[in-house]
Amino acid sequence: MSVSPTFVYGLTGLFLFVVGLGGLISCPQLLRKILAVNIMVSGVFLFLVTIGYGHGVIIDPVPHAMVLTGIVVSVSGTAVALALACRVHETFNMSDLLKRRTRSNDR
């Protein structure tokens, strides 16, 4: 019995989702959490693209449109997360970086 390629792709997508979830929960650093979320996103997209091939010879375009929209959403989400992570980093490293605080007070 041969395993179809779509099955392998779909399973890889789910595997990536789980790996990202594990990273999101276990990594304490914010940047790693954001990267873990991005791995999860890739897993979901791979799964969605695979669905399009499931219905026979004709490729279903709807999941592809979903992935395109999803990419836009995930890029914006990542941007917000990174910006916020920078702010959190600035705020909470103050004890080590006293110089930065005085500089921001001057402004």
């Binding site: 959490k33 989400g77 959190v88």
Partner: peptide, 13 residues
């Protein structure tokens, strides 16, 4: 800021 960061990660998840 910390609460918002956590809120964002939970929301995305």
């Amino acid at each position: 800021q910390v609460a918002g960061m956590r809120y964002l990660l939970v929301s995305i998840l």
